[in-house]
Structures are given as structure tokens and as C-alpha cells.
Write a protein that binds this DNA or RNA. Sequence first.
DNA 1: CGCGGCTTTGATGTTCATCAAGTAAAGTGG
DNA 2: CCACTTTACTTGATGAACATCAAAGCCGCG
Lengths: 235, 235
Amino acid sequence: MVAEANTPKNNCKCLSCELRNLVFTNLAEDDVRRVCESKEEFSYLKGEIIHSEGESIKYFKYLKNGLVKLFRVTPEGNEQIITITRPFEFVSNTNAFHEERYSYSLSALEDSIVCCVHIEFIKDLILRNGKFALNLISSYARTAEGIISLGLEIRKRNLAGRTAFVLLYFSNEIYHSRIFELPVSRKEIADLISMSSANVIRTFSEFRRDGIIRANGRNIEIIDINKLEVISRRG
Amino acid sequence: MVAEANTPKNNCKCLSCELRNLVFTNLAEDDVRRVCESKEEFSYLKGEIIHSEGESIKYFKYLKNGLVKLFRVTPEGNEQIITITRPFEFVSNTNAFHEERYSYSLSALEDSIVCCVHIEFIKDLILRNGKFALNLISSYARTAEGIISLGLEIRKRNLAGRTAFVLLYFSNEIYHSRIFELPVSRKEIADLISMSSANVIRTFSEFRRDGIIRANGRNIEIIDINKLEVISRRG
DNA sequence: CGCGGCTTTGATGTTCATCAAGTAAAGTGG
DNA sequence: CCACTTTACTTGATGAACATCAAAGCCGCG
């Protein structure tokens, strides 16, 4: 990995930043300027860790660019992937406000840019700006609810259903296309849907045999989306 | 069930309410009085629905007394239980602030009292009182994080591990005793851990045969908690 | 007393994890 | 640039884990 990742940049203009429309709406220009001066932008290369379980929480983090996975490692050493998400998600951990340390790790699946504001700065904004606070709670709730509902969708399906669901998830939510390059290994898909990697691979092969997808390494094309949706619903 | 359930009561003294220590800290006495006048307390008998998926969200709800389950019903008609929780949980749905309608249902597993404050009132408090907002975010995050982590704990275990985990959950988190009466049917445990009810029952029988628990209907005694913990960790 | 729902157990077949062995791909060092 | 190592992928075979079906017992309620 590369030194660049640990060198903060601060070359964005917060007043015109896309992120302003999400959480930083309703800030006075003066506050935006303060956020802008306080914030630090970090770049991460594909594969790099953004933060690890147990690290102390210093920043409120927003994904500005790229793709990340939130995960934890069980005592036995197995990864559990909690969610995979695109900008402009509020990727700071779900416990930024009630704990001192991250309970989950975050890493970059594609080169990513994370906008970081000191957590104390955010807390101060909450204290002083009610509209900001209300906005933040909404974003926060949306993110948490997405994670919870993803877990329920996975839990109710069997192997084939889960696999189909994940393919549709990437196609519909992440890439908005039926042709895409998977950002994760087969094993990571297994860690996301709580199945063994051998069986995920087997299911991919079956989908290929049945003419539902084309799969060449990480390059995926969904051919028969109807069948895939049926499998996802049935499974 | 009974008319009482739909008749709000308002006989508590909010200034001395236990709940004040949770979210309503940092309110001026005047605001507490306003909360007190605005709030409504609803009682629910065991088995009653507190609210259903799709209903519009009018109240911010706090569980003051009792025990509740948060759940949803899949299109196929199966229940998925998201969490089972005691006071003083912030049981209002995780989407109270970013959606108009509940995405999950809530019902009483024991006779329960829910303290309800109009959501607009809460939003107004967030706007006007930064400390309240910060406190609320903390509670909110804690609740959401509990649900997410429960899901991960369940997903990483097999049938026996999940069953042991749930028994320990009731013993440690809900009843603080090794002898307790289950608040749910075998089928509801199955709906919580995403397994079939027949297999949950079978696992109970095995635990009984192996001298790990005594189980007479819903009356449970954990005899060998060490073994149960090993099964929960291993499984 | 009878009915319906929850519980229990057994039998059966499906689904899934695991192990093993082989292939392809990608990084590493000479 | 090639040989080497490692990591990801793939497939088959096997047994364990789990769902499902069915039948019977139990209990509470009308």
C-alpha cells in the first residue's frame, strides 16, 4: 500500500461539495467554512483498511468516492461482512456516538476517498444546530435500517436465494447495470451471505450452466434477470 | 383483547420518571412539563400488537414496562423476529426519523406500558435542544447496534449454537436468572434464529437429555451453563 | 367434551459444510 | 523475463446438518 493513504488532503471546496446536500444542509456559511477547515480527506487504495475494530473513534466519516465493506472478524478468525456500500454513505460506524471504539472494521473495495470530520466537531454542531442534528439522525437511521434489513433478507433465504439476491444487489444497487465487475472475491460473497465459499462458487457455476448469468472471473453479466429474481424470491 | 389498551393514561410524574435519565436528561423543567402534558401512556396486554408494519408513525415510543418483540412478516407469511427487548428500550422503529411508516411490527410478549410522545414534539425538541439531540442519537445508535450485532451472532452459529445462544440471552439479558419462564413459543424462537420450529424443539430435547437444561413447557432452568456456553461458542 | 393450536418425535430426503485435489491467475524474487 | 510461490477458483465426493412431512400427545378454551 502507499503513503498517500495516510496523507490528508484538503483541496475540496465544502461550499460546493455534493455532501453538503446530505448531512451538512442547513449549516450557516460560517459553519461550513469551519467544517471545511477542520475536515481531512483521506484516500485509500483498493484493499486498504480504513479503520479496524477496537481503534478509537476520532472521526465522523463520510464516503465521498469509491466502495467500501464494513465487517468484523469472529474469535475463530472468520470474516462477517455487514454491508457493502457506495457514496454517499455515512460509513462511520454505527457506534460513533455511544462508544469510544469501533466495533466493526472498514476497508476499501475500490480506491476510495473518505471525508473525515473530528467527532467532537460534529458533536458540537449537533449541540448548536438543531436542523443539522435532525438531518444527521435521519441519515443515521437510514444507514442502520439498511444494514438491519439486509441481514433479514439474507437470513430468510437459502444458498441459491442468497446468491441470487447478492447478484441482484450488485446489479441494482451498486452498479445499475446488468454487466459489472464484482468488487469482491467469491469468499467475500460467502462472508456476506454466511455460506461456505465452495458452495457460493458451485451456485455461480449452476447459474452459468442454466444460462442465467455469464461469469468470467469477476466479470458478471446477468442474462436472465427474471429467473434470477424468481430464485431470489423463492429461495 | 381489551379496550384499556387503547385508552391513554397520563398519570405519571415525568419530573420523577425513570425514563428521564435516558433520553430526557438535559431538558429544562419547563420542557419536561410540556413532554409530560403531551405524552400518552398506553397499556398492552400480553399478545397485543403495539403497531404494525405500514402504519403511519405518529409517536416516538419508549418501553416503560414489560417485554416486546419487534418483527416483520415476509411475503410468504413467515414471521422474522428482529429483537426481543426489555425496558427501557427505545422501541420506536429504527425508521421513525427517515420514513413515514413503520417497516416493522411491535407486539407485547408480557403486559407492557409504552410511553408515547408525538414525533413532531420530539423533532421540535431536537431542533431546540442540542443536548437532548446528542442523547437521543446515542440511545438510537445503541439500539440499532444491538439489533445488528444480534443478527451477526445468530448468523455465525449453527442450530445448536443458535439455540444455546438464545437461552443464554434470555437468562443473562432478559431475566438475570438461570430459572425463568420463556416469554415466547418454540416457533417464535425459531422465527428469531431463522430455523424450523421442529428443529428448535429437537434441540431443546437434546439439551434436556444431556442434562444441560430442565424444560417443562415454557419453564426453563439452565443446569449446566458451562456446557451451554461452550455450545454457543462452538456452534 | 371436543376442537384447535402448540409441542414432541420419528422418518425421509434435501441442503449444506467440509475435505481433497486440481487448475488458473496473480504476485515475488532471482 | 522466467521460475516460483501463493492465492483464488473450481469440481467432485462424502457425511453432517437441516427442513419437511406425518402422526400422536398435550393443553387450554369455549
